[in-house]
């Protein structure tokens, strides 16, 4: 037994030298002192030792245990000192997980949608290819209205269908106005935000034949111009920040009366006038009080209910945010990865 104990001691010493990590150290410790470890098993045998030798062996057991313990402590300290000295150059280039990019239009849409959802607007989606009735007639734009010309709207090569007319690529999200009134069965209140692709036959530095609009429609009893103004002030504050100011200018749209153009102070020049803006103001988009003919088209009684509506370009609005000046809008849908990766 003496020999066994000393063997364990020597053996453990050897093994300790080879230990490189604290996990290995723990494992070795358990293999020696654990319940079924070598030392524990050997020490058990003291029962079998004759009485006269028991004391000597007992002392040896304690001594060996002490010695091994000490060497464990020593090795532990050594390991700690080594690991504390281990250096990593923290300026080494990182290995990043693959990271893609969302399109700037998606970023704009989700930011805008959230702002309106916070004040009770419900987001909806309506057909991109719709009938003339929804795109024009129901919006108080009669057959000879200029917006219905071939050079303002794309038409699908298909036969017309009764009073609903031809198929068009919706030139604005306003086509969803009467669709939403129908969905609500002509019963206000309505607070809709409709964000969708729109199409118009223009293709130049500031136009793409496909673009996106967000359309707001609010209908209830007692809705008036101050609500429209309050909503835009809220939106401008949330989206552009508290420093930018808005103004309403009289304008003309067939489906609203009164109609307004909404302007916001230019961020580049702080409203003093520069190359980008019109004397300090940038046009956000059109809006107005829903025309009674439009309410009637949606089976809502214009003598009981009033409403306001607006339809603005997603791309245009996002470009007016600080920091994003894109000279040529066509780059948005050219999908050059060197552009896409910037967002």
């Amino acid at each position: 037994m003496e020999k066994d104990l000393l063997n364990i001691q020597e053996d453990t010493h050897k093994k300790l030298k080879a230990v490189k990590t604290s996990q290995e150290l723990t494992a070795l410790y358990l293999s020696v002192f654990g319940k079924s470890g070598r030392f524990a098993q050997t020490a058990k045998r003291i029962q079998e030792i004759p009485k006269d030798k028991k004391k000597t062996i007992g002392l040896l057991v304690n001594k060996v245990k002490q010695t091994i313990d000490d060497s464990f402590d020593k090795r532990k300290k050594e390991l700690m000192e080594t690991s504390i000295k281990n250096k990593i150059d923290v300026t080494i280039p990182a290995i990043t997980p693959p990271l893609g990019h969302l399109h700037i239009t998606t970023l704009a849409i989700s930011e805008i949608a959230k702002i309106f959802e916070r004040i009770g607007f419900t987001r909806v989606r309506y057909p991109e290819i719709d009938r003339e009735w929804y795109a024009f007639e129901s919006l108080n734009m009669p057959v000879n209205h200029p917006a219905r010309d071939d050079f303002e709207t794309f038409f699908i090569d298909a036969p017309p269908f009764g009073k609903l007319g031809r198929l068009v690529l919706s030139p604005h999200t306003s086509s969803g106005q009467v669709r939403e009134m129908e969905r609500m069965r002509g019963i206000p209140p309505i607070r809709m935000i409709n964000i969708a692709k729109c199409y118009r036959p223009n293709w130049d530095i500031s136009h793409t034949p496909m673009f996106h609009q967000f359309e707001g429609l609010v209908i209830d009893r007692g809705i008036n111009v101050t609500h429209l103004k309050g909503t835009f002030e809220y939106f401008a504050r949330e989206f552009f920040g508290p420093k930018r100011k808005i103004r309403l200018r009289p304008f003309h749209f067939q489906f609203t009366e009164p109609s307004f153009e909404v302007d916001i102070t230019c961020d580049m020049c702080g409203g003093n006038g520069c190359r980008l803006c019109k004397e300090g103001w940038l046009e956000l988009g059109g809006s107005g009080m829903v025309h009674p003919n439009v309410l009637a088209a949606g089976k809502i009684d214009p003598t009981l209910y009033t409403g306001y509506a607006f339809g603005w370009g997603i791309e245009r609005t996002y470009m007016m945010k600080a920091g994003i000046q894109i000279d040529d809008l066509r780059i948005l849908y050219a999908n050059d990865i060197r552009f896409l990766e910037q967002f």
Partner: peptide, 8 residues
């Protein structure tokens, strides 16, 4: 005109 949010 003042600006205010809808109350309904």
């Amino acid at each position: 005109l003042p600006g205010k949010l809808m109350e309904g």
